[in-house]
């Protein structure tokens, strides 16, 4: 199995791509023909992977957009579903919740991640290497392990509550199945995405820089603020952008938390399509989510390009 079967649309696009490349080649003068043929051949090499991408990713996305404006039989149905969905409060609320959770998660990850990275880099302790390895491993664990653990530990019938029940006044914690639970779980899971790039940056800072800063009279806080953090700013901005995007798109953690009143866009897509089988509405929500995600992703790419390009140009 080398490629997924092509849809007719993908085949058309591939043919169109071939045609575009071909006409481009023939427009050149004869002297450049050989070089052109070679560049044509290298471009042709890109066609098979692009065809696969089109078939399994771009076409389904296009179909989703189409579904939001079509009937179940495949005919154009107008923008009724759109106006209906856009006027409903649910979509607006979901957008707000999604962005709010992503923002809280990003802030939490940046704070915790910066603290961990600075500590692990500059105040090493005997277990710090194990901690770094663990942080790296967690990224490849399934995301739902954190909400699962939160449920066991802090859930209504969890360890913490049964321990607290024995205390006078029987205090009670109940945050897991609500927004704080989601945010804490996402912070725990996404923090390594901030720590890892920061560790790489901090590993590059020569020790002499910190020593000299100290000998010039700077205390640890001034050294942190004036020497360490300025160096980490591009990496920090990039990883914050990545965490925001991942948190916006996160589904497994919210699903596992079982927070019924935390309805983000992915959750809304899931309920509309799988639970209530309202596929056109689900498609509208998916389009909204898609637009939002792509916008954030575009900003993230631009940010990364500017930060890395800026430092490279200045270097």
């Amino acid at each position: 199995m080398t490629a997924a079967p092509e849809t007719p649309r993908a085949a058309t696009m591939r043919a169109r791509a071939r045609w575009a490349v071909g006409s481009h080649g023939s427009a050149r003068v004869a002297g450049a023909e050989r070089r052109d043929r070679r560049s044509l051949r290298t471009l042709l090499w890109a066609v098979p992977p692009l065809a696969v991408l089109t078939a399994i990713f771009l076409v389904p996305l296009a179909e989703t957009v189409w579904q939001s404006v079509s009937t179940t039989s495949g005919a154009f149905a107008g923008f009724g579903t759109w106006s209906q969905a856009l006027s409903s409060a649910a979509l607006g609320r979901a957008v707000g919740t999604t962005l709010w959770i992503a923002l809280l998660t990003t802030c939490g990850c940046v704070l915790v991640g910066t603290f961990l990275a600075v500590g692990l880099s500059f105040v090493p302790f005997s277990g710090s290497r194990v901690a770094v390895r663990l942080l790296e491993a967690v990224v490849s664990f399934p995301s739902f392990i954190i909400p699962l653990a939160f449920g066991i530990l802090y859930g209504r019938a969890g360890v913490l509550n049964s321990a607290l029940a024995g205390l006078p006044g029987s205090p009670h914690v109940d945050f897991v199945n609500d927004l704080p639970g989601v945010v804490f779980a996402e912070i725990a899971y996404f923090t390594p995405f901030v720590v890892r790039p920061l560790l790489a940056v901090f590993g590059q800072i020569p020790r002499e820089l910190l020593d000299v800063s100290g000998s010039l009279g700077a205390g640890p806080l001034m050294t942190l603020r004036r020497v360490i953090l300025p160096d980490a700013r591009p990496a920090l901005a990039a990883s914050a952008g990545l965490v925001f995007l991942l948190a916006m798109n996160e589904f497994g953690i919210i699903m596992f938390t079982g927070a019924k009143n935390v309805v983000t866009l992915p959750m809304l897509v899931y309920t509309k399509s799988i639970v209530t089988f309202d596929l056109p509405s689900a498609a509208v929500v998916a389009c909204a989510q898609l637009a939002l995600s792509l916008a954030v992703y575009g900003l993230y790419r631009a940010l990364v390009r500017r930060l890395s390009g800026g430092s490279r140009a200045a270097a």
């Binding site: 990713f57 389904p60 998916a286």
Partner: peptide
Amino acid sequence: HLPAAVPSVVVGLGLLAA
């Protein structure tokens, strides 16, 4: 790079649609 930016649920819905 694009698939990384799209939520998994939307990818799933798209496959169902297609």
